[in-house]
Design a protein around this nucleic acid. Structure first.
Lengths: 227, 227
DNA sequence: ATTGAAAATGAATGATCGTTCATTTATTTT
DNA sequence: AAAATAAATGAACGATCATTCATTTTCAAT
């Protein structure tokens, strides 16, 4: 326990310090290694699980010696933490962006369900890791991820409560309904394959109908695509 | 790769060889170690994950030296395999028993939903392991577990299709609906706590209503307990 | 009591783990 | 071009891993 200062970049995503001048194609191979580490770890963790993946495997996938990883992340745990926090942050940010583009009066339940399915299908590895590897997070990191997860849940709970107060849904326990719906939707990437007979749009419609039904809402009348 | 013959008992559960005479309290400590190994592994795998648990930890929990484990299981993988196959087998067996006691004409959907919730709440560690550790199973063992899982799914699909053909449900894709419902129900143990404000019976009722709604069934009219 | 098998021990196997570090190489800043 | 900083190397650290095995202990059957 002395991974104090050093100089890990780690957070990836965007220029951290001072890349002032040229922004794109940062010379030959500037600080992109951290991002490649994340990407390699993402795939390996998703496939074999955090505990079953070694730093040597990650390094090998990146094409670098194991010791080099520690120029970017202080510990293996920090890689997992970065992946999960980044995913949850991106999810919340993507929802805010999605909601921002929605016209007044739109059925937010439909927007949420479609958004959730679409986002989770497009980021299935991040999603998979983010709730398979929760128990491998140290308590502090777990708490941080859990906080974000609860914020996301609260979004749907809010939508349900709004609908209840307008008499559009018949819900006994909005918190329970929230968990039921999210579990139902989040299960999709576990079996859905693009090569299958169902398009993503049809999946959205089917699940939207089921969600509406489970809330006692008036059926049908989905906006976009149809079966 | 030479764990050929040896003499592992392993399968636990019931008297294997020839305990003919006395059946209960098998002398002092007959062949119960295998069962204690399973129980210890169950708790440890559920808490920390298969890959993160060492044979030494399991042995320590059993109160035995690591080498002694190999009198009962050829490999660590065999412990996981035993846990998962045993769980899936017990689940299917419990369903058959449950269905056997049900009078003619009963709503099988309600029976199934209540059974699933009740069983999964009472065996949350087995359930947790059985779909968290699927990827840690060697291909052959994975296939065996997956086969049982599909049999279980087919039970619900059959119930849905029966209801469809009788015009009681409005379902677009019974296979999809099956996965949606099972994901919804299986998510319960992840958050439900006996110490919470909701009784298990009330959970059953809430979820049953949601499931019925999601299938476009006529609402309410649940038989047993009510909110 | 004696025999034989099953179970447990205790020590060892080679492999692999996360991590460290002095040093070299590459890149950026001056 | 020189100095400074960042990144990567290659080798090593102690610890722990799953598993093996000769030996001893425990137990059930004779």
């Amino acid at each position: 326990m002395d991974h104090s200062g050093k100089r890990q970049a780690g957070t990836l995503g965007g220029a951290a310090g001072k890349p002032s001048a040229s922004d794109d194609t940062r010379s030959t191979k500037g600080g992109q290694t951290a991002a490649r580490v994340c990407k390699a770890a993402l795939h390996l963790f998703a496939r074999h699980g955090y505990a079953a993946v070694s730093m040597r495997q990650i390094a090998s996938e990146v094409g670098v010696q194991p010791g080099a990883l520690y120029n970017h992340f202080a510990t293996k745990q920090d890689i997992l933490k970065a992946l999960m926090l980044e995913h949850m942050g991106a999810l919340l940010q993507a929802w805010e962006a999605c909601r921002g583009t929605v016209p007044e009066g739109t059925d937010l339940l439909e927007v949420f369900v479609r958004f959730h399915i679409r986002y989770h299908l497009s980021r299935s590895e991040e999603v998979f890791i983010s709730y398979m590897e929760l128990r491998n997070l140290e308590p502090e990191n777990f708490a941080a991820v859990e906080r974000l997860r609860q914020i996301y849940e609260a979004i749907l709970t809010g939508i349900l409560e709004d609908g209840m107060s307008q008499g559009r849904y018949r819900i006994e326990e909005p918190r329970v309904a929230t968990r039921a719906i999210i579990a139902m939707l989040t299960g999709i990437p576990a079996w859905y394959r693009e090569t299958g007979s169902l398009t993503a749009g049809r999946i959205e419609t089917i699940y939207l109908d089921m969600v509406r039904g489970s809330l006692g809402a008036a059926p049908a009348f989905t906006a976009g695509e149809s079966g």
